[in-house]
Design a protein around this nucleic acid. Structure first.
Lengths: 214, 214
DNA sequence: CGGGAATGTCAATACAAATGTAAATGCAAT
DNA sequence: ATTGCATTTACATTTGTATTGACATTCCCG
């Protein structure tokens, strides 16, 4: 994605969209200037910014027609793939994207995994084998600070290393349930658990498969 | 390669690469500082260290653009991703790549999956849940006409639909072993089984994960 | 067609916020 | 002691956004 818009530019883009939809074409610089309470030259600058960032296009030098490029079009042919970071440890500090430990990145099928800001986590231990999640698997996660009953989440227990478990909310506690008879569910107080994300996919590479054959 | 970098600097370099690839350009010092949980001046020092050691270059004195120069980049010229076909049915006719049934394709991380002519197969049934392979998973396969004991393979049983099982060779038979106590191993004559490939990876998407949450 | 009104462009300028630089300093490990 | 890595603080530069005014182009109506 091209460099993102500043808040101001986003406002302006929103305004432009609205006007074009309403009137069929873009307003003049001075008209827009009146609407927005700024000067016409400022509008011209904003418009140029949008143009440089690929959100709009104009014809000739003095043309008064503006085309907005829709975001899907902007990427010129949807990417078939995407890359997300593999975080090693997720320290307790929020927000999520602070203090991350970069372990690298992994490429995913973009049509399979939607959503913003996905990240991946290397699964340690065999507490979730019952749900088909093995030691060494890569868990693809969608960042979230809450969870619903039964969802498989990655959570921080008291600021420790992150773990993957099934989530259940009780009246006065949170229960994290492993998916392996060798382990037992554990209950925690609300202040002991920090949900970091929901597991929406699993990637198992040749290394893990090879170990299975051991 | 010459790791004349300290571990810290290597971390930072890795972080830089990820960010540049993700956002198209280097983050600001203070943004990086937030991400890494250190002060902006510390980032500037790290950056200067990388510059002095020849891993990065910047333009002017106050420029915000950073170029990474070290060719040690794993993915320098190489594609970071690859696309392989998802075959629906594998017909008995050999060679493998004739007469396939195209169900689409899937994108994989090229650094994770090596090898030529990989293909993927949608797993049906729950006979392999014990090995962490669930109904609906995508099995990434390496084409092979043979197999070793204990390997998880995709095989054709008497020209029927392909199945995924663990492979064992007996003196006078082939045993295909499910990984689920509800099923039993089955023995076949040599002429009843056609090994089509070895499973080297698993892809589980949001759809399957969602079903897990019931 | 011609001319005025509306519109787009450019240049100089201002200011705040974000960003990069530098200096002084502390601490731990070699 | 030196080096790597961190801090804090002060300062310089760039960028985004705004201004104003002069000028060029286009549109439209008489």
């Amino acid at each position: 994605m091209p460099p993102d818009l500043t808040p101001r530019q986003e406002d302006f883009l929103r305004y432009l969209r609205e006007e074009i939809r309403r009137a069929g074409r873009a307003p003049s610089l001075r008209r827009a200037a009146r609407d927005l309470g700024i000067s016409h030259a400022a509008v011209a600058q904003l418009l140029r910014a949008l143009e440089e960032k690929g959100y709009a296009r104009r014809q000739g030098r003095y043309s008064r027609t503006v085309h907005l490029l829709n975001p899907a079009r902007r990427t010129a042919g949807l990417q078939r793939w995407r890359e997300i970071p593999v975080v090693g440890r997720i320290t307790a500090g929020l927000p999520m994207y602070a203090q991350q430990q970069w372990e690298g990145s992994v490429v995913l099928d973009a049509e399979l995994y939607r959503g913003e800001n996905l990240f991946a986590l290397r699964v340690r231990g065999d507490s979730m084998t019952g749900a088909g999640i093995l030691d060494g698997d890569l868990a693809v996660c969608q960042p979230r600070q809450y969870a619903c009953n039964g969802e498989i989440v990655v959570a921080l227990i008291g600021g420790e290393e992150a773990t993957v478990k099934r989530f259940f909310l009780g009246g006065d506690h949170i229960e994290l349930r492993p998916e392996n008879p060798a382990y037992r569910p554990v209950r925690y107080g609300f202040d002991e658990i920090l949900v970091q994300g929901r597991v929406i996919g699993i990637q198992r590479g040749p290394d893990v498969m090879r170990r299975l054959e051991g």
